[in-house]
Nucleic acid binder design. Structure first.
Length: 641
RNA sequence: GGGGGCGUAGCUCAGUCGGAUAGAGCAUCAGCCUUCUAAGCUGAGGGUCACAGGUUCGAUUCCUGUCGCCCCUACCA
């Protein structure tokens, strides 16, 4: 280099289209060391530079930017006839586990669960698009307090035996997950009014953990039925799973006992002999909190985390450490597996078992990287789990444990009012109200999906009265899913969603249906073209560099092409930042750009044949990029809208 | 008390390693359907990027402090 300075040359996108395709701010970086004005440095850098292939020109702009302009025809030619199949396979053959959904199997799924599942599923799709090997796990806490409460409700409040509960499950006129939603709210209220009844919970938990007796039996059939309902709900949104690891197997197969021995051996936890945690096995706060080491004894507060209670039972975190170890293949033991169910496309979901394994079962676990999609309120517990791995000497795996956190979905005051939820004066002043399963307060996932479908159906019916009813309903479903998935993805993860029904039901503006509509419009052009001119031309043979050069002199066409060509880097960026919202935003921008193009240009009626074919090709390219991006977001494009 | 997050247009939110004139949607107002479908397009108004310092060629972005809001801080999960 001219200045004898080694520097990573960074590239960035100019804020404005008129500044070219790439900007090199290197002169600014050098300015500090060279004590020269950035503009002067840029001039020296460009002086005598040889022409670069694919680059049309370099120029200095602003007070020191070097703007790069690409050779448009060459760039377009590369997109018309891609040189070989350059699939973006960055997969290194290492398995990635994404754990998401993880709903307590004691009641119907609500909108908060939808955010988790949609975020997780979209991230999975993004990774798979890049060629990664991904395993989707949905952890089932079938022995926890929430299940126990509903079981206690059936057993003690409703006086139902296992066979009675099974009848409810088998009754097609009853939505069992909704029934449990209400029962859970009722028993939670009952506990509050009559604290003595909390003994039921203890009794039920004990029964479920032992795995024997009527309480355990009711526990199994309730949890299984609810899991079935959850998978059905999620499948409506195109969300599938590979394996369902259950807490009952973690208990019965002694996963915890193994992890416990490891933790004791390596001194990750110790037996507390005094203070409030006397008689417990605890992890010192210094393990999972940096600042804790210095100020251990301020106010005498003990911030250690209890792993094993004084009565000898293990906390959730303890089990989670064992589970996390298994995910990395570090526990030294495995579950047994049996088939749970199969999706219509044949994809098999497996569930863990403590008996014996099906011969066909694939190998689960043993990943190199693990994403846990869990809401941000649990970041403290996730920190403890990771600290556990680190304390055991598994530093690399601790680093590869990623808490894919997101903020909760709350309800807007307006939506609460619409649903008849009473609000205190204090709540009314807040921007949002937290949902509560214990109070039965929230929006059920299936209700929301149903309402979206009905709203979409009304639109489709008014626009296409001549189309068959089942077709219209299918399309309404696609639109509903598009609206819902986009709505859940448009916010970045650390933003609390104040769920507003009116906003969620919107199909205009920055929404999924807006993007779907753009794609439908493009498809209409192809249909009309075929009606008028016959089959679509073979673009590779028809379009030559001269024609492309001429066509893309037009700045708006060029900008459109450029934007559409960036879908791959949009996915890269979204994966790197862990923000599916970035990809959603890209899809919206692409749709918006297409709508502008659609409004300005007539493809079919263009009289110049070369130009018509060029317009058609650009439409085709935009369409395929939009459809594939929407696909990664889990949004399909209807036949008509 | 401790830990974490947030504060950007009337509302809901983006804002890429610190970079060029701070963006989008909704809402409001004014326009555009004989056209490849108006779930669309064009335009207008709307900003002390919470506040005060600091770092430097340059700060919405990084640092410190103040104010306000939220979450976590259980032998629940």
């Amino acid at each position: 280099m001219k200045f004898q300075i080694e520097l990573p040359v960074s590239l960035e996108q100019p804020k404005q289209a008129g500044f070219g395709e790439l900007a090199v701010p290197v002169a600014f970086q050098l300015a500090r060391q060279l004590k020269k004005p950035p503009k002067q440095i840029a001039e020296i850098l460009l002086d005598g530079l040889q022409p670069i292939s694919g680059v049309a020109s370099l120029e200095i702009a602003g007070n020191g930017y070097i703007n790069v302009r690409l050779d448009r025809a060459a760039y377009a030619q590369g997109l018309v006839s891609p040189a070989g199949l350059t699939e973006p396979t960055v997969g290194r053959g290492c398995k990635i586990i994404v754990e998401h959904t993880n709903i307590n199997p004691n009641k119907a799924a609500h909108i908060g669960h939808l955010r988790n599942a949609i975020l997780g599923d979209t991230f999975v799709r993004m990774l798979r698009q890049r060629g990664e090997q991904v395993e989707v796990q949905n952890y089932i806490d079938n022995t926890g307090v929430q299940v126990a409460d509903v079981v206690a409700g059936f057993h003690y409040m409703e006086k139902k035996r296992p066979a009675d509960v099974q009848l409810l499950i088998d009754n097609p006129a009853i939505r069992f997950d909704y029934l449990c939603w209400d029962l859970y709210a009722r028993i939670s209220t009952f506990y509050k009014e009559d604290p003595a009844s909390l003994a039921w919970r203890a009794e039920t938990l004990h029964g479920i953990e032992s795995g024997e007796g009527e309480l355990a039996e009711v526990g199994y059939i309730v949890a299984d039925a609810i899991v079935k309902a959850h998978l059905k709900t999620m499948y409506r949104l195109g969300i599938q799973y590979d394996v369902l690891p259950r807490e009952s197997e973690i208990l019965h197969l002694q996963f915890w006992a193994t992890a416990f021995e490891l933790l004791k051996q390596r001194g990750a936890i110790y037996f507390e002999t005094e203070g409030k945690n006397k008689g417990c096995w605890v992890m010192p706060a210094s393990a999972f909190r940096e600042s804790a080491a210095q100020e251990q004894d301020n106010d005498g507060v003990d911030d250690s985390k209890v792993i094993v209670r004084s009565n000898g039972t293990v906390t959730y975190v303890g089990k989670d450490i064992a589970y996390q170890l298994w995910k990395f293949g570090l526990l030294g033991k495995d579950f047994f597996y049996r088939p749970w169910s199969a999706y219509p496309d044949g994809h098999q979901v497996w569930v863990t078992s403590d008996q014996s394994s099906d011969q066909q079962a694939p190998h689960f676990g043993g990943a190199a990287k693990v994403y846990n999609v869990i809401d941000s309120r649990q970041s403290y517990l996730q920190d403890v789990v990771v600290a556990g791995l680190r304390a055991l000497g598994f530093g690399a795996q601790a680093d590869a444990s990623i808490h894919f956190s997101y903020e909760m979905v709350a309800l807007s005051p307006r939506t609460c009012a619409q649903m008849g939820i009473p609000l205190s004066e204090e709540d009314k002043r807040r921007p949002y109200v937290e949902v509560s399963g214990r109070k039965g307060l929230g929006v059920k996932a299936d209700d929301l999906i149903d309402q979206l479908i009905e709203t979409a159906l009304a639109e489709v019916e008014s626009r296409h009265p001549e189309e068959p009813a089942d077709k219209r309903r299918h399309i309404a479903g696609q639109i509903a899913i598009g609206a819902l998935r986009y709505f859940m993805l448009k916010f970045t993860r650390n933003s609390v969603i104040a769920f507003d029904l009116q906003e969620a039901l919107a199909f205009e503006g920055e929404t999924g249906p807006y993007a779907q509509y753009s794609a439908v419009r493009a498809a209409n052009i192809f249909r009309k073209y075929a009606e008028r001119f016959g089959e679509l031309p073979a673009f590779e043979t028809v379009l030559n560099t001269d024609a492309l050069k001429d066509f893309f002199e037009n700045d708006s066409f060029w900008q459109l092409l450029l934007l559409a060509s960036k879908s791959g880097s949009a996915i890269e960026r979204a994966v790197a930042s862990g923000e599916p919202a970035h990809l959603a935003k890209y899809a919206f921008q692409l749709a918006q750009a297409f709508n502008n193009f659609y409004h300005d240009q007539r493809v079919i009626t263009e009289e110049d044949e070369t130009r018509r074919i060029l317009l058609l090709w650009l439409t085709k390219y935009l369409y395929s990029q939009l459809v594939s991006t929407l696909g990664v977001l889990g949004i399909s494009v209807p036949e008509y809208m």
